[in-house]
Structures are given as structure tokens and as C-alpha cells.
Design a binder for these strands. Structure first.
Length: 463
RNA sequence: UCCCGGGUAGCUCAGCCGGCAGAGCGGAUGGCUGUUAACCAUCUUGUCGGGGGUUCGAAUCCCUCCCCGGGAGCCA
């Protein structure tokens, strides 16, 4: 079908041209001599105004052109005499592909709550809000690849199904082809996974990091961008059971390089959104007020605050102790309230916290000279909390082995990981960024379930 | 999983110290010479989340289950 996208009609000069547009009716306003239809085809934040004079044959079809109807309209693009739009389509002919019963169609010509829209996940992309979210999400996805490709990083595809259950990143989903009605059992009552598809228990990945490490230690700079699965019973506005993660890994790099990459990365993504999603951001600013063009400009330009964990503890101790529910003490992990205090109250922007005590971080993080802290870094964002977690990896075989033992990581199944330290080991570093949290941060959407088309959370797998 | 708050019309919510179920929006119809979530008039709408109990009488009080939201933990 030969159709012109509404974004083109609105942003390029079509005045005086005859076009055909297709889309879904957002609203219809009828007067005696003329009717107006606001049409949206998903390509733009704004609608195209269709003008239907009572002389047009289409005027008789107005009764079945309700909010939600899918239509095709052709006519002449004219300069609009009305306020609110620069051009409009004077309709010559209209085809109704699918009407929508106005009495039953759930999307009314009015605002809806995000909670209600979550119940109609299949229709919510037709709203202003979700159209904007998914367009911004797309620009961000594209910018992820653009950023890394420009810098010579290789996109690697780490496995979705994995046998390693020792990444320390939480509970895993088991992947099995066993007949659940007739499970093969060991004598002690455990399930015998040797009869399963892979001959051993398999899982959905919780992180591609360990695989990305061996790819970095051969290809140099690599990144992953794919789905990640966590079977944790987390019920918050910033957790999903299925989410997308971006994990760059760099050979011959230390923590400073890692932090710089994280900062450049977030700033690049942010500037791309400012460049390509002006209307969408303006929309979020107007209706959700959790984000603004000014804030995003700051984010894209100002260097992130960098402090060590030890400094963070000192800053928090300076704050009135009564303000915190949880204790602030060197050696204890930072709680949400502490992270929020750092980003929202003290530094008023993203904060990179580095060099955490080794006891509260993963075994693969490189031990610092002091023997107490590791070369870790978390990027904390205002309101959201941690959006990036990264580290320089432990490349020294003996120290890594000790840390695995201390952390009760089964060394036996990790021999391949240790091999990387036996043969041509090199300093390397990387991080993981939760893509939806970034989309949340940039759009200001309060709930992570509203930045992914089909959110998966405990007890929820509709749509 | 824990702690709070909530579930009443298609949507948003009022009613909750027990006594005939309401408003706004939406939708329908009519009016209006260009509207902007149009406007004006009229009409339309119920398993008061489910089950049980107390009572002459329960949306309202009690018990229980389910669902939704906010916060916390786990993390990205």
C-alpha cells in the first residue's frame, strides 16, 4: 500500500501535495458543516488533523469513524488556519479498515491511569504515553549499537540457555524438556537431570558477563545486548523477571576506563534522545514531570560525580542519622534510602560509587591493593537507584581462586573461567546496564512495567 | 517475601460512625459555519472484588481469600 507516514507529513513540507495516510483515530469532532479527525499512525507524537467538509462523500461515513478506528484517508495537505497544527489534510476519500465500537473500546477520549492501561497491554501502545515510550526505547536501542560500533566494539551473542548457576546474580529459571508428569528421580528424591535435554540442569541466563569475558580476552572490546532472566520474587517498580541488559567488556582496561565508558555511554544515549525524540521528551515533561529537557541536557553534558564507597559512607554519616531507617557503617551495603540520599540530596545527579568492601561484592571483582576493597563501580541514578554495576575483573589466578573459595563458588565447574587466567590473562573490565532502568530514567516513567511492551514479573505473564 | 494503602458505572472517584447506590468523564441522540481531550441540552450505566459471618437491615461492621498500588529486601 502506498501510504505516507504521518511523521513525514508533519515534519517535511507536504503543503500542496496529495497524500494517502493510514492510522488510528484518536478523536473526532463534529460541527454542522465540517468534521475533524485526529489521526495517529504511531510514527509521531503528534496527530495529523483530517478535515472533512460536509460536501465530501466521507462525511456520510462519520458515524463509523470513532476513536480507535483504523482508517485510510487521502486528500490535499493544506496550511492549517486553526491553532495547534501547521498543516492538515483536507480529505477527499476515506476507507474504514476496522471500526471500533465506541461503547466498548477501552481507550476513551480522555486520560487513563497507567494501572488501567497495564490491564490492556495489547492496546496501550496506541496511547500517547506508550507510543512515546516505545519510540524512545527504539532510539535508545539503536544508539546502543551506534555508540559501541563507532568505538570498534564487537557485538557478541552470549547464550540465553546456560549451565552455569554460579554467577551470583540471583535465582535462575530452569530450562527443561523433561515430562513434568513423569520426572526421573534419584533414589534420594532429587530430580535426575542427566535425563534432561542437555544431560544436566540448564537455566536461562542471568548475565552474559562470564562469556563476554572470554570473548573480550580474544576480540578486545565487545558488548552484549540481549534479554536476561531473573527468577527473584521482586515486586517493585524497578524489577522485571525478563529484562534487557547491555554488557560491555574491555580487554586491557582498568576501572577508570570502565567508569569513563559508562559515563560516555549514558551521555551518548541521552544526547541521542534529545536529538531525535524532542516531542516525546516534551510530552513526558508535560504529563509526568519526572524528566525534563533541561535535566537531560545536564545528564548529557555534566561529568558524573565520582566517590569511593568509603567517601560515600563519610558523606552519609554527616547527614542526620535520624533520617535513615538502616544503619550507615563501613562494611554494610548501601540501602536504597542511602543511594537516593546521595543522588537526590547531596549530589543532585548521577553518582558513581567505587571501591566497595570485598565482602559485599561478587567474587570476580578485582581485589584492590588494600586487600579490603574491590575495583567495583555502581552508577546510581536519581529516583531509580542503580542503573549500572561494573568492575575491573580479577585477572590473577591465585587471588581469584581464593575469592571463589571464600564465596563458596564451585571451582570445578568454572575451570574454563580460570583458564582465562592461566593462559594469556590480561586486565579487563566491564559493566552491566539495565536497559529498562535507563529507559525509565530518561522518560521519567515511574514504573518499569511501563517501559517494556510485555512486562514479566512474578505471577504476571499476560500478553 | 515483609510493611502500608486501596478494590463502588466503561474510566476516575465520592458515599464507609449500618437505613432506597451517586458525581465527573466516556457513550448515544439532538443542536452549533473551523474544532483542538470542542462546546450546549437530553438520555444512558452497577455481581459495591469473591466467599462466609453479625444484624430486622451491610457498599458501610467482623473473618477469610483474590486482585491492584506504594515502600522495603534481592538486583540491573
Amino acid at each position: 500500500m502506498n501510504r505516507t507516514r504521518i511523521i513525514s507529513v508533519l515534519t517535511e513540507n507536504y503543503i500542496g501535495k496529495t497524500v494517502t495516510v493510514c492510522g488510528w483515530v484518536r478523536s473526532k469532532r463534529e460541527s454542522k458543516g465540517v468534521a475533524f479527525v485526529a489521526l495517529n499512525d504511531g510514527t509521531s507524537q503528534d496527530t495529523l488533523q483530517l478535515v472533512i467538509p460536509d460536501t465530501a462523500s466521507a462525511f456520510k461515513e462519520l458515524h463509523c469513524i470513532n476513536t480507535g478506528a483504523a482508517i485510510r484517508a487521502e486528500g490535499l495537505i493544506k496550511k492549517s488556519p486553526g491553532k495547534g497544527q501547521s498543516c492538515e489534510l483536507e480529505v477527499n476519500g476515506i476507507t474504514v479498515y476496522g471500526n471500533a465500537d465506541a461503547e466498548k473500546y477501552p481507550l476513551q477520549k480522555k486520560g487513563h491511569t497507567l494501572e488501567f492501561l497495564r490491564e490492556i497491554g495489547h492496546l496501550r501502545p496506541r496511547t500517547n504515553t506508550f507510543g512515546a515510550v516505545f519510540r524512545v526505547r527504539n532510539i535508545l536501542s539503536d544508539a546502543v549499537h551506534e555508540f559501541f560500533q563507532k568505538r570498534g566494539f564487537i557485538w557478541v551473542h552470549t547464550p540465553i540457555i546456560t549451565a552455569s548457576d554460579c554467577e551470583g546474580a540471583g535465582d535462575l529459571f530452569t530450562v527443561s524438556s523433561l515430562d513434568f508428569e513423569k520426572l526421573p528421580m534419584h533414589e534420594n528424591g532429587d530430580i535426575d537431570f542427566s535425563h534432561d535435554f542437555f544431560g544436566k540442569r540448564a537455566f536461562l541466563t542471568v548475565s552474559g558477563q562470564l562469556e563476554a569475558e572470554f570473548l573480550a580476552l580474544s576480540l578486545g572490546d565487545v558488548y552484549t545486548f540481549g534479554p536476561t532472566f531473573r527468577a527473584e520474587n521482586s515486586n517493585t517498580s524497578r524489577h522485571l523477571s525478563e529484562f534487557w541488559m547491555i554488557e560491555p567488556e574491555m580487554a586491557f582496561a582498568d576501572l577508570t576506563d570502565d567508569i569513563k565508558l559508562a559515563e560516555d555511554f549514558v551521555q551518548y544515549l541521552c544526547s541521542k534522545v534529545l536529538e531525535k525524540c524532542e516531542k516525546e521528551i516534551a510530552f513526558f515533561q508535560k504529563f509526568y514531570k519526572n524528566t525534563s529537557i533541561e535535566e537531560l541536557k545536564d545528564l548529557a553534558e555534566k561529568p558524573f560525580t565520582r566517590i569511593t564507597y568509603t567517601q560515600a559512607i563519610e558523606e552519609l554519616e554527616k547527614a542526620k542519622k535520624a533520617e535513615f531507617e538502616f544503619p550507615v557503617k563501613w562494611g554494610l551495603d548501601l540501602q536504597s534510602e542511602h543511594e537516593k540520599y546521595l543522588t537526590d540530596n547531596i549530589f543532585k545527579g548521577p553518582v558513581v560509587v567505587t571501591d566497595y568492601p570485598k565482602e559485599i561484592k561478587a567474587f570476580y571483582m578485582r581485589l584492590n591493593e588494600d586487600g579490603n576493597t574491590v575495583a567495583a563501580m555502581d552508577v546510581l541514578a536519581p529516583k531509580i537507584g542503580e542503573i549500572i554495576g561494573g568492575s575491573q575483573r580479577e585477572e590473577r589466578l591465585d587471588i581469584l581462586k581464593n575469592r571463589m573459595t571464600d564465596a563458596s563458588v564451585p571451582v570445578k565447574s568454572m575451570e574454563w573461567y580460570l583458564d582465562l587466567r592461566r593462559y594469556g590473562s590480561a586486565p579487563h573490565a566491564g559493566f552491566g546496564l539495565g536497559f529498562e532502568r535507563l529507559v525509565q530514567y530518561i522518560t521519567g516513567m515511574p514504573n518499569i512495567r511501563d517501559v517494556i511492551p510485555c512486562p514479566r514479573t512474578p505471577q504476571h505473564i499476560r500478553f
